[in-house]
Write a protein that binds this DNA or RNA. Structure first.
Length: 567
RNA sequence: AGCGGGAUUGUGUAAGGGUAGCACAGCAGACUCUGACUCUGUAUGUGAGGGUUCGAAUCCUUCUCCCGCUGCCA
C-alpha cells in the first residue's frame, strides 16, 4: 500500500463520544478501545459492509485499540458455514486483520442461557405461552399498551418451563422467554421483548445441541460484554434498540465491561441497491450472472470488476460518518478507483472499435519494433516492445469523414496526428463499403519522426492516437459495464426496483484488438484481484477471472477515463 | 398519534458563538506523445419564522419536511 494513498479516517462524531469516554477516565476500567465487526453469516459482504468494516477497524486503529471479528450466528434458520469462509476472505482481501480474535456468537450459548436463568430468578424474565398470532394481537399499538397474561407467572414455574424448553420438550412456537420491562413503553422494543425462542433446527456449528436460540437484542449486548467490547458501533436502525441493549447489560451479572452502543447512518449509493434481499433477488431471477457479477456492489463483484481494496477503502473513509440519510454518487466510487489505478496500472494500447489504417508510403514488408514506457508517470515501471507495420488498427472514433468543431484527429486534409510511440501521420483518404461505412483509412507517415518525434522538432497539432499493429494484434472480447439501474434511487419509496433496471448495463464488444504482449498477461484466480491495465484513452480493464483462457481474452472495464471531449 | 433520529451548495462531509472550509461532480484556462493525469482559477449552500447577542449554521423557541420502529430476523 503506497503511503500517499493509505486510507486515513478523519475525525467524526463517534470519535467525539469516545474522546468523551476517555476524558471521563473511561466508562470501563483501564479502557483500551475495543470494537467488533459482527456479520451474520447468511450472505456475501457488499460495499455497505465495507463502510462498517472501516468504521469498526478504523476506529480501533485510530485509538491504538483492537477489533474483533464475530459471526453473529444466533439464528440457524438463515445461516450457513459456507458464508463464514467467504466473509473472512473478503475482509482479509480488504486488508483488515482481526489477528486471533475470531469468535462465534454461538460459542456463548451456554453463558447466555445462564444469564437468562439469572433474569428469571431476579423476576426480570418469564416464560410466555402466547401463540404468534396472539402475540401480535396482544402487542398493542401507539396509545394502547401491550397485554401479557403470563408476565406474573411464578419464578419457579418459569425456571422449570425454560429448562424444559431447552431440553426439547416443546415444539417450535409453543413458548418464548420474555424480558419483563414495560408493556406501555412508546418504544415497542421495551414491551416485554422475546429474548429466547424455540427452534428445532440444526445449527451450523452447534449441531443439535440447542433447540432454543437467543434473540439478537438479548444476545448482542452479551456478546459485546463478554468480549470486552468498549464501543459497539452499528447502524441507525438499532437506535431504538439501545435502551434494551443497556437494560440487558445492566441487569445481568457480567463481570466485564459495560459496552456503549453508538449508531451511524448506513450508506446509499445512487443507481444501485444494497439490501441483501434485493441483491439475492437479482441473482435468483437471473438478472445478473451471479453474486460476483461485475455490476454487483458485492465485494466479490467489485473485485471481479477490477476494483482494488485501496480504492474501496479510500471511498469508505472519505464519504465520512454521520447520522443523516445519505446517497453517495456512484461517480465518487469511480473517482476513488481511478485515483488508485492511475498510479499503478500499466499502460497498454487496445482498440475497442477497430478500423484499418493503411500507411500508404510505408513499405509493405517492413516491420519495426518500438520501445514504449509502461507508465509515463512512473518511469521505474520499465518499458515494453511493440511491433509496427504498414497496417494498424485505430479507433473508429478517431476518424471522421467531415470534422466537427475542435476535432483534432484524422480526417481528409486534417492535421498531423501522432501514432503513440511510432510515427507522425496525416490522413490522405478513406474507403467505404456500399453503405458508406468507412472500411479503411489511408495515411502518409513522416519517415523522419521515428518514435513519434519529428526530426525538425515541429509541433504536432493533432492528437496522439492509440493503435495496435494489425500483423500481431490479438482479438479480445471487451465487456463494458454501466450502472445496473437507470434510476438514481431504485431503492427509494414503494416502486419496484426491478422496473428501474438499466437494459444497457452490459455491452459486449467482440473483435476488439489488443497488443500482442497481453497474450502473456496473467489470468487471475477467481477471488483474487485482477491486475488492471489502462487501455490508453479507453479506461481501466482487467482480465475476467472466469471467462478468460489463454488465447481467448475477455476484459472487464472497471471504469472509463474521464473524457473532456464529447464527440 | 407514541418512541427514536435527521435537515449545511448538484453529492457527501467539516465548522459547536467570531471570515461557512474540504472532497467529488460542474464550468473556464494552462500543461501534455493518453482530449487521461497534473496544475490554476471560478459559480452555487446553513429547511422556515421568531428570539438572545456587538456577532448565530452553532444557543432558546415555534413550525415544516424526511427517515426508522408495532418479527418468536439481524
Amino acid at each position: 500500500m503506497s503511503e500517499e494513498l493509505k486510507p486515513v479516517m478523519g475525525q467524526n462524531f463517534i470519535h467525539d463520544f469516545i474522546d468523551e469516554d476517555l476524558a471521563e477516565g473511561g466508562r470501563c476500567e483501564g479502557m483500551q478501545v475495543h470494537t467488533r465487526f459482527p456479520p451474520e453469516p447468511n450472505g456475501y459482504l457488499h460495499i455497505g459492509h465495507c463502510k462498517a468494516l472501516c468504521i469498526d477497524f478504523g476506529t480501533a486503529e485510530k485509538y491504538g485499540g483492537i477489533c474483533n471479528l464475530r459471526m453473529d450466528d444466533t439464528n440457524p434458520t438463515k445461516e450457513d458455514e459456507e458464508f463464514v469462509d467467504a466473509i473472512q476472505e473478503d475482509i482479509h482481501w480488504l486488508g483488515f486483520d482481526w489477528e486471533d480474535r475470531f469468535y462465534y456468537a454461538s460459542d456463548y450459548f451456554e453463558k447466555m442461557y445462564e444469564f437468562a436463568v439469572e433474569l428469571i430468578q431476579k423476576g426480570l424474565a418469564y416464560v410466555c405461552e402466547l401463540t404468534p398470532e396472539e402475540f401480535k394481537e396482544f402487542r398493542g399499538d401507539i396509545g394502547t399498551p401491550a397485554r401479557s397474561p403470563w408476565r406474573d407467572r411464578p419464578i419457579e414455574e418459569s425456571l422449570e418451563l425454560f429448562e424444559r424448553m431447552k431440553n426439547g420438550e416443546f415444539p417450535n412456537g409453543r413458548y418464548t422467554l420474555r424480558a419483563k420491562i414495560d408493556l406501555a413503553s412508546g418504544n415497542f422494543n421495551m414491551r416485554d421483548p422475546v429474548i429466547y425462542r424455540i427452534n428445532h433446527m440444526r445449527h451450523h456449528r452447534q449441531g443439535d445441541k440447542w433447540c432454543i436460540y437467543p434473540m439478537y437484542d438479548f444476545a448482542h449486548p452479551l456478546e459485546d460484554a463478554l468480549e470486552g467490547i468498549t464501543h459497539s458501533l452499528c447502524s441507525l436502525e438499532f437506535e431504538n434498540h439501545r435502551p434494551l441493549y443497556n437494560w440487558v447489560v445492566e441487569n445481568v451479572s457480567i463481570p466485564y465491561h459495560k459496552p456503549r452502543q453508538i449508531e451511524f447512518s448506513r450508506m446509499g449509493i445512487d443507481h444501485t441497491v444494497m439490501s441483501k434481499r434485493k441483491l439475492r433477488q437479482l441473482v435468483e431471477e437471473g438478472r445478473v450472472a451471479g453474486w460476483d457479477d461485475p455490476r454487483m456492489p458485492t465485494l466479490c463483484g467489485l473485485r471481479r470488476r477490477g476494483y482494488t481494496p485501496m480504492a474501496i477503502r479510500n471511498f469508505c473513509d472519505r464519504i465520512g460518518v454521520a447520522k443523516s440519510t445519505n446517497v453517495i454518487e456512484y461517480g465518487f466510487l469511480e473517482h476513488c478507483l481511478r485515483e488508485d489505478l492511475n498510479l499503478t496500472a500499466p499502460r497498454v494500447m487496445a482498440v475497442l472499435h477497430p478500423v484499418k489504417l493503411v500507411i500508404a508510403n510505408y513499405p509493405a514488408d517492413k516491420v519495426e519494433t518500438f520501445t514504449v514506457e509502461n507508465n509515463p508517470n512512473r518511469p521505474e515501471d520499465g518499458t515494453r516492445e511493440i511491433t509496427f507495420s504498414r497496417e494498424v488498427w485505430v479507433e473508429a472514433e478517431d476518424f471522421l469523414k467531415e470534422p466537427v468543431p475542435k476535432y483534432k484527429r484524422l480526417y481528409p486534409g486534417g492535421p498531423e496526428c501522432r501514432l503513440k510511440g511510432a510515427y507522425v501521420i496525416r490522413c490522405v483518404g478513406y474507403e467505404t463499403d456500399e453503405n458508406g461505412n468507412v472500411t479503411e483509412i489511408s495515411a502518409e507517415y513522416d519517415p523522419n519522426s521515428r518514435g513519434g518525434d519529428p526530426a525538425d522538432g515541429r509541433k504536432i497539432k493533432g492528437a496522439t492516437l492509440h493503435w495496435v499493429d494489425a500483423a500481431t494484434a490479438l482479438d479480445a472480447e471487451i465487456r463494458l459495464y454501466d450502472n445496473l439501474f437507470s434510476d438514481e434511487s431504485p431503492d427509494a419509496g414503494d416502486k419496484n426496483f426491478l422496473e428501474c433496471l438499466n437494459p444497457n448495463s452490459l455491452e459486449i464488444l467482440t473483435g476488439s484488438k489488443v497488443e500482442a504482449g497481453l497474450a502473456s498477461a496473467p489470468i487471475p484466480e477467481p477471488g483474487k484481484t485482477a491486475p488492471s491495465y489502462q487501455f490508453m484513452r479507453q479506461g481501466y480493464f482487467c482480465l475476467d477471472c472466469r471467462d478468460s483462457k489463454p488465447g481467448s481474452l475477455v476484459f472487464n472495464r472497471s471504469v472509463s477515463l474521464k473524457d473532456s471531449f464529447k464527440f
